[in-house]
Every structure is written in structure tokens, then in C-alpha cells.
Amino acid sequence: MLKNSLRLRAGLLSVLIFVAIVGIWQVATMPTAASGPAMDPEYAKLVGAAAATGQKSAMPTPADIGATIWKHLADPFYIRGSNDKGIGIQLAYSLGRVLLGFGLAALVAIPLGFLIGMSPLVYRALDPFIQILKPVSPLAWMPLALYTIKDSAISSIFVIFICSIWPMLINTAFGVGSVRKEWLNVARTLEVGPFRTAFKVILPAAAPTIMTGMRISVGIAWLVIVAAEMLVGGTGIGYFVWNEWNNLSIANIVTAILLIGLVGLLLDQGLAYLAKLVTYPE
């Protein structure tokens, strides 16, 4: 009862905030007759003449955005030439790259993390590399990837791979390394072999920590893919945003931002759901 009323009030407040934002936005973007305040010439050059002279704000009104979103959602998967693809197609490109890079990273990070977590020797040997490479922005790898791979699509997958590997690697190693000793002792007293111990005891014990790592990784990967596609161009939602900036279509950009947020949310919730399946109460 109490919880319900809290949820209701929170929902109401959310709607209120939303209405307020849209209202302020609407007021701020109403076309003005008078010429706007003096603009930075650099900026004026970027946004183009129409906006600079101030007849109509380049910033669309909420109604414009609504119309644009509707237009995109009505037909998300069209292809009209290489530079004109539906927003659904672009999102699918990005999602595909993220899932591919992330999946490959998981294939490497989880077994390697297992090894690091089980063997103090491997842990110490690999620690310096991890410590140095982990803080590097994944985009810094892009030129190296483009040079060696010579393919922009694969390069962006590689960048996703690199940025998703660290949280999974570190969490797997930590989860495996901190499996309760008494659980391992149970396996030892039952003379369970190393492989069976790994799959029946260590993996389920560390699974919640590993899943947390995967959740962090997929979040970072989704952040990075937009930037990576802005750099390499061609396809993807990042490229779409950059292209619309060149077309000066703010409404399209805002639509893309909202959809990027939505897909990120879905990815996160999907992994949260998987994490819930493997957590165990103690």
C-alpha cells in the first residue's frame, strides 16, 4: 500500500518533470522576430546562415521532435542508397558490432580471468600488462587497428573488443579468486577433479561477479561504439548522428540520442536479468 503510493507519486513527479522540460523547451525554441544575440562567428559558420541570422531557431521545437520520432519509427528499416538508411538499420549495425566485439571479448576474458584467478603466478605475470592497458581509452587503439586490420568495420569491432575485455577479465579473476575456501574444501574432500571443480563449484560461485563484469562491459561498449562509428563512418548509429550534424538536423540527432539511450537501457536490463538467474542467496 505504502509502496504503491510511493511508486504512484514518483511516477507523477516524473511526468511533471517531463512536462516542465518540454514546456521550457517549447518556449525557448519559439521563433523570434528580433534578431538573436550576437553569435560567435565560428559557431555561426558551423550552424549555417539560416540560424545565424536568427529568423528561425535551428533548435527544433518538441513538436518537431515528436514528428521526427514518429517518422523514424513509422519506417525504421528502409534503405535508400548508402547514405540514407533507416534509423533501425543504423542501430542494428551498431548493436551487431557491439554484440560481436563483446562476445569475442567474453570468450577471451572469462577463460583468461579464470586462469588469473586460479593461479597466483599467472596473476602476477599478467598484472603489469592489465594495469597499463586498462586505463587506455579504447579509441586510442583505433588508428593502430585501422593500420593493421585495414578495414573500418572490423576495426570498430576490435575497439569494442578491447574496451569490453577489462571489466570482464578483472571481475572474473576476482570472482574466481575469492570463491569461499570451504566450498573448495568440500570439492577436495569429495576428490572432485579440477575440471569438475571448475564447472560445478568455481563457475557457479563466481557467476554473479562475472555477470556484473559483463554488465559493466556491455555498458562501456555501447558508449564507445557511438564514438567509434563517428570516427570511422560508413554505417551505424554513431555515423548517423555525425551525418545528421553535417545536415544540421537537430531533430534527427535528438531522436538518435533517445534511441541510443533506450537500446543501452535494454542491454543493461537484459544482462541484469541474466545476472539474476545466476545469483544465489547465501
Binding site: 570451504e182 574444501n185 557467476a207
Partner: peptide, 20 residues
């Protein structure tokens, strides 16, 4: 020279595997 199935242990904490 190591654990054996001939010697079963009942641990001080019950040491059950919580996911099973």
C-alpha cells in the same frame, strides 16, 4: 597425503553449496 572419499568431513560451518 591428501583428502579422500574414505574420510567424510562435516564442516564447522555447514559448507553447503548455496546455488544447489
Amino acid at each position: 597425503d591428501g583428502p579422500s572419499l574414505d574420510r567424510a568431513v562435516i564442516f564447522q560451518g555447514h559448507a553447503l553449496l548455496p546455488w544447489m
